[in-house]
Amino acid sequence: MLELDRIDVHYAKNHVLKGVSLNIREGEVVSLVGSNAAGKTTTLRTIMGLKACTAGTIRFAGASLEGQATDQRVAGGIVLVPEGRQVFPRFTVSENLLMGAYHRRDRNRLDDDLDKAYAMFPRLAERRGQKAGSMSGGEQQMLAIARGLLSRPRCLLLDEPTLGLAPRIVDEISLTIRKLAEQGLTVLLAEQNAGMALAVADRAYVLETGRVSLEGTGAELAGNEAVRRNYLDN
């Protein structure tokens, strides 16, 4: 459904992505594992068109994304929940959720979607009138994911959703990802927390200084000696 073919990205003279190829099939959860500065965030930003690639092609649902601005990609169904959550701090929870639906044609009839989001994240329902900036990191992450779902994604990109969160919240988020996968949503998850990322993924790629060094099913990679040594604690 989402294919990256030998993508190159430069920041000024720094060659950050070097021929990255990924293939995410419909209904799959694919993890992108790697340490800090391996290029995970850049990969997702490039998919969204926030960063231009210097070579290579990205195809979504069979069509090239070349020349499409970010808003067109969002309208096409690729939605990114960015690193660091990036909720709108001065908007309430419900206003944040509404912004997720900004690009939708049926944006004035969102009651069902809001009910669904609140059913999935009961803590958000309790706080729907609260300013997002005054919530905890875990709550903001839930809100960012819920806001992403209001965009009605066909393919959801999650950038470091567990960064800086307590283990209990990390479990909650991986449970959420599993639930979304059961509903058939295609997910690309970029994570430093390799244990969690490999556990939820059907397949995974390991990104090392801008190159894909390994790929395989989540279980294969979790059993791989190099992965265990570099990315998993045991």
């Binding site: 926030l50 808003d71 969002v74 960015p82 990036q86 709108f88 701090p89 912004m99 900004y102």
Partner: peptide
């Protein structure tokens, strides 16, 4: 948040 707004389309 300019970038988050762009990500909403």
């Amino acid at each position: 948040n300019p970038e988050a707004a762009a990500l909403m389309g």
